[in-house]
Design a protein around this nucleic acid. Structure first.
Lengths: 246, 246
DNA sequence: CGACTGGTTGAGTATGGTCAACTTCGGTGG
DNA sequence: CCACCGAAGTTGACCATACTCAACCAGTCG
């Protein structure tokens, strides 16, 4: 190097992962960020593009800067399933002891991610307890969300799943639980593959929620929640008369 | 105390969590175990018993010693869903920032667990890198298994789900991938609630796998795998002609 | 404008859910 | 040891939800 560059590279300086105290890069010192920015690989991905296998090979730790990344599995006969959604701040650690295929990461919206190699990430985890805490919290949250998602897929009807999906989107969006209008974020086909439905069923289900007066569809991707208690009851699997009362 | 007790309490001395190098207590020094055994709460639970809320209040970290623990959610109208199965060595960390209800832990077989309080667990994680590594590995594995389970629930037919369940049981059992005869571990109703089916469908599905010559049912809870490649193809969602060829 | 992608609508169907009856198993007590 | 009881599991008939397939519609981009 020409001279000791004690400044943070631009790619990190303005990164969204520093802008919220809950996010990983907000835990780091200037020195750590300088070092990190020499090793990190921020990348933009277009919708439907997979995260390059070559990138993952060297850099198996992915932090989602913005957009939505899906973990996609394709069954032998072509059925596609999206097992997990990753949103801003989520840390995806694809390293596994057993070398079973783990599915593929695909951008479901235009997205930006930041890829790290094992050594850098492990060192950061070891040396910075705040990074470690944030990362472990994120893993715990992922485990918890995965459990809730399993409940959705296991026992809920199509309208119930869609109600649950609307709340899931809202929770993960800027503004969170106070938003009245939620962005569905994904295309119908992706919502379908994530919620274990067909695109047609998603369409009919959303219409059904609208017919019941629970939501209003604003264009193709926005939903306004009209009756939040009832929508919540429905998402929690309450029978019709309970949801109506809510 | 009467005198410095430098011995490990019996409850820890013979614990299965020390007997395998992958498990959490096998990472600990004698000194740590002595200290730990003063704080840990090994408990036996009968099938269908929930893990006591009082225990969890004080000790939100649970290690599964043996048996199967399920994370159960009950919907507003009574439908029951088992989101996750925890087996020997799994570490359940129920602490969450947001105080949303997280479901209930229930023993699905006679089980033994060991409950720890936050402080003890966090200190152990901080002071012992091996404990930390094992625990983080376990969390990563849980995230991964949850993703696979979501694929099962989202897009697979009843026989496919049951084939996948048989492999999941085998993987988690002593002997693992080499076993020919697998213990289904759970009752039909619990398998149903875990795989997003009804008990009747589980029964019919297992019969169907038997009819196709993929498995043989030995009593109510044992299954012998007769055609492993074909069963695997089926579990992976291959169409009938591919599975038959396998 | 035409081609394309994404979304919606409709008709028919199949898979798995529901409900009820029945069987098997395992434990308990006479 | 067998009789009995309750829990667990299986079977069958019927039915509903969501899937399939096809046509159609609405934007968008060259």
């Amino acid at each position: 190097m020409d001279r000791p560059a004690a400044t943070i590279a631009d790619k990190c300086r303005f990164c969204a992962l520093r802008m919220d105290s809950q996010l990983i890069c907000a835990q780091m010192s200037v020195g750590e960020l300088v070092e990190l920015s020499a090793r990190s690989n921020p990348t933009s991905i277009n919708r439907k593009q997979p995260v390059s296998a070559r990138l993952l090979q060297r850099n198996p730790i992915i932090a989602v800067i913005d957009g939505v990344i899906g973990l996609q599995h394709v069954l032998k006969d072509g059925r596609r399933s999206i097992a997990t959604l990753f949103w801003q701040g989520d840390i995806i650690d694809l390293r596994r002891p057993t070398q079973r295929p783990a599915g593929q990461l695909v951008a479901l919206t235009p997205a930006r991610i930041c890829a790290l190699d094992s050594e850098t990430f492990d060192r950061l985890m070891r040396d910075n307890p705040d990074v470690q805490a944030v990362t472990i919290d994120n893993m715990r949250e992922q485990i918890h969300l995965a459990a809730e998602h399993s409940v959705d897929l296991g026992k809920k009807s199509a309208p119930e799943r869609l109600a649950a999906y609307i709340f899931e989107c809202r929770r993960r969006q800027l503004g969170g639980d106070s938003l009245k209008t939620v962005d569905l974020a994904l295309r119908r086909a992706d919502i379908a593959d994530y919620m274990g439905l067909q695109p047609e069923t998603v369409s009919r289900g959303l219409k059904e929620l609208e017919r019941r007066g629970l939501i209003a569809l604003k264009g193709r991707s926005k939903v306004t929640i009209l009756n939040e208690p009832a929508l919540r009851e429905l998402a929690n699997g309450a029978p019709a008369h309970m949801a109506a009362r809510a």
